[in-house]
């Protein structure tokens, strides 16, 4: 599936003096929605600036939509729609003119930019509010306006930096649905940096996880979840003995009362659990694969990297 790559990098390294912000990254981001995750200082911002062609890399290569990040920054930025995390709108301008101007900065003719601005604002749900000044907008409306600015020239790739930051439940839902629609119906790709695992999981099929400038994990969320696959059982009777025996037989067991989660190590795991239950005289009243969330996956990866964290908020909250 090389043909559908939107971003690829080989040994991409960026150093600021002795500090290595990106350390030999080999990343492949395919078409569709991808979440960009990582704790503070992981290199997310540097990575975004690199793929926007704004900073020169120290070594390695990278391509975005087939363009070289070293030499074709302008071409890359013409095909990307960037939605920044923080306010990036002139508060004194009307939404329609703000979006039109962002189109003009892409090189669109003023009249065409105005027409597209109407379409974009309609698409992000601000059709009726487009002549209002940005300063009167709520946070959700500002986020939507930024998205409209990013979408005006119909980019092949949208980079959304914390798109649901500061939004209430309704507007957050709408924003995520809009990104979903852009990917599913519009056929565009989204690279979404967020510290909200639920949001990433709702929109994205893939993730890229950075840690201290290095690639910690990348790929389909479903595939990555397999590294933390567990079987959940509800045990009645001799639970402690059952737990000990399962551990003795080489299985990884986490127990909370009568509920146990056992590391999945192949199809034989189910037989082994049932056999153990029969041996120790326990009843297994319920057994099913435990559906790990992205949050669980993140914590497992971080644990493997030596972080003792209780939730993603500990690491990403201030990101």
């Amino acid at each position: 599936m090389v043909g559908d790559l939107v971003i690829e990098s080989t040994a991409l390294t960026k150093a600021y003096g002795p500090h290595v912000a990106l350390d030999s990254l080999d990343i492949e981001i395919h078409q569709g929605a991808t979440g960009l995750l990582g704790p503070n200082g992981a290199g997310k911002s540097t990575f975004l600036k690199t793929i926007l062609g704004l900073i020169q890399v120290t070594s390695g290569d990278g391509k975005v939509l087939g363009h070289d990040i070293r030499t074709q920054g302008d071409q890359i930025r013409q095909k990307i729609g960037y939605m920044p995390e923080y306010d990036a709108l002139n508060p004194g301008m009307d939404a329609i003119h703000q979006v039109r101007y962002s189109g003009e900065l892409m090189g669109m003719n003023p009249s065409i930019a105005l027409q597209r601005a109407h379409q974009s604002l309609e698409y992000v749900g601000l059709g009726e509010q487009r002549y209002r000044q940005v300063s009167t907008f709520s946070t959700g409306m500002k986020q939507a306006t930024k998205l409209a600015c990013a979408l005006i020239h119909d980019p092949a790739l949208i980079i959304a930096d914390e798109p649901s930051n500061g939004l209430d439940a309704f507007t957050r839902n709408f924003m995520l649905n809009t990104l979903n629609t852009t990917v599913k119906n519009g056929g565009r790709s989204v690279l979404m940096a967020s510290h909200l695992m639920d949001d990433v999981e709702r929109v994205c099929d893939n993730i890229v996880l950075l840690h201290k400038g290095k690639l910690a994990a990348q790929g389909k969320i479903e595939d990555l979840k397999a590294i933390d696959r567990e079987v959940e059982i509800h045990v009645w009777g001799s639970a402690t003995k059952m737990e000990e025996t399962l551990s003795d037989r080489g299985l990884r067991v986490r127990r909370e009362g009568r509920v146990m989660r056992i590391g999945h190590s192949g199809d034989e795991t189910y037989d082994l659990i049932l056999q153990t239950a029969a041996d120790v005289g326990s009843q297994v009243r319920r057994m099913h694969d435990y559906e790990a969330s992205l949050e669980d996956l993140f914590l497992v990866i971080m644990e493997r990297l030596g972080h003792d964290v209780k939730s993603s908020e500990d690491l990403l909250g201030g990101a």
Partner: peptide
Amino acid sequence: IFQQIYQPWNGTLNPRWMRNWAILRH
């Protein structure tokens, strides 16, 4: 009734001078 439909755009973007003109004009 709000129907969210993504509308593609197949136009051509103008070169550098037009972008600079947009800033000046603005």
